[in-house]
Write a protein that binds this DNA or RNA. Structure first.
Length: 203
DNA sequence: AATATCCCCAACCGCGCTGCT
DNA sequence: TAGCAGCGCGGTTGGGGATAT
């Protein structure tokens, strides 16, 4: 039986207060990240280290962008999801200022539905049965989102269709390489290092 | 105006991975 | 090599605001 990450009794749960946020920010500014297990006690917080880490990474980090996703960010998420699947941390690593949690939430609440409305299976990015392929370019017209997607919106099925029997990521990456000639800023060095994020602060 | 339902997103949970002893 | 500790990841939950009835 695995030990719990911390002694949960006498620990706060749920939403963070401003005072708690400030304590965590002050502590990390003064001492930097790392050793999350010891941070709560050192910072005077009644939280487990895991909770502190999540709060910092997903909400308090100064380099977070927050706010609505731009069209090119949506586009990139769809492309990377087609390539990587639910590897949210890898996908978020290609989106400066975005967190894995944010990307995951955005996918589940917006992009999944968007692809479904376009007749694309969001799980494998292949065409569904309902919408004939020749209608895909018009598919955005029944898009329920308000992003106003135009024809520039990613059509992952176009390049996936011709490689549908190939599940190897490396081969998929080469497909994406071809496809992303129109996206010169798409860095396909698929490591977990965050753009603009000091790797020395990571383990 | 009151109530019900939907939707978003912050936070939690459990597991896997890695490094250390 | 095995066991442990700590961190990171992905799936899931639930609170609360927005919208519909």
């Amino acid at each position: 039986m695995r030990k719990p990450c911390c002694d949960k009794q006498d620990k706060n749960k749920g939403a963070w207060s401003k005072q708690e946020d400030q304590k965590l920010i002050d502590y990390i500014r003064a001492h930097g990240e790392g050793c999350w297990r010891s941070i709560p006690q050192a910072a005077g917080l009644l939280r487990c280290g895991k909770s502190c880490r999540l709060r910092w990474i997903n909400y308090l980090r100064p380099d977070l962008k927050r706010g609505n996703f731009a069209e090119d960010e949506e586009d990139l998420i769809i492309k990377l999801h087609a390539l990587l699947g639910n590897r949210w941390s890898l996908i978020a690593g290609r989106l400066p200022g975005r967190t894995d949690n944010e990307v995951k939430n955005y996918w589940n609440s917006h992009l999944r539905r968007k692809l479904i409305n376009m007749g694309i299976d969001p799980n494998n990015h292949r065409l569904g049965r309902r919408t004939p392929s020749h209608q895909q370019h018009k598919g955005v017209s029944n898009n329920s989102t308000s992003s106003g997607s135009k024809s520039q919106v990613c059509q992952p099925q176009q390049w996936l269709r011709s490689h549908r029997d190939n599940d190897q990521v490396s081969d998929m990456a080469s497909c994406l390489d071809d496809h992303t000639s129109t996206l010169p800023d798409l860095n396909l060095d698929l490591t977990t290092e965050r753009v603009g994020w000091d790797p020395s602060t990571k383990r």
